[in-house]
Nucleic acid binder design. Sequence first.
DNA 1: CGGATTTGACCACT
DNA 2: AGTGGTCAAATCCG
Length: 285
Amino acid sequence: MVMEEKLVINELEQGRELAQRLMSNLKDTSSIESSKNLISEILSIYQNAISMLDDKKVLKRSREIDDKDSKNVIKKRQVFEKKTEKVSFFVGAGQEKGSIDDGYCWRKYGQKEIHGSINPRGYFRCTHRFTQNCLAVKQVQKSDRDPSIFEVKYVGSHTCNNTTTSPKTPNFSISMFQQEDIKPTKTEEAMMSLEDLESTKNIFRTFSFSNYEIENAGGGWKGNLFHEDQLSPAATTSGSGITSEVATAPASVENSETADSYFSSLDNIIDFGPDWLLSCDVLNW
DNA sequence: CGGATTTGACCACT
DNA sequence: AGTGGTCAAATCCG
């Protein structure tokens, strides 16, 4: 395990301990039940993050991809390109038929029954793939746990300018992305990642915690999802369009010094090495 | 009629 | 061989 990975786990463990201490401080106060729930969720998130980072298979896989490419293994062009793409995992309350309107034009090109999942996964590519060479792709799968929620995975970003409407922000969302193959020569992509990380401080303040777990950071995207009753008031106000409120922290978090200390910890831990990026961002849809 | 969706086949990877 | 991702012909729909 490289130094950065150890540091990340260290930081997360510290955060978990602090949350546990706060939890015991609140034990005998029944009026702050919601705070307790919040802390439980924080603990859950920390646990998930630690588990993810402690999964040597994932980390090993990430490095192996680098090795393969450096050895000039010839692969199908599409497959190779994918490994360099930004991947966003996205969960949130969805709309009917999985037709989550993110402001872009998508064309469905496939559907697949996924082993271990009740619901099939739909494959969408940008309508302008051929006209504008836009390589954005997304996968949409209805959550097994809550059919009203869709899990969306974005691969690549839009290079087209065409949107059905102005890009929308989901009523609530959090995404996690992993760039699996950032090589020193990929300066541009690396810079993009740093920009994403740069904005992470603020982004971390935009969501109300909920259990979020990824069984397999490399490809899995299962999780305890965001239910409407767990969303911040701002997040539940509208399913259409970007609202400034969406970028506002839930009061329970904003007003909590303790929560701020956690965010400070997160500020520290996002300074990862380039081969493993973990971040949260709010996508424009 | 043209574009979008469906769905079985095919391919790459493990 | 199993699985996930993509292709492409058939079909649907406005």
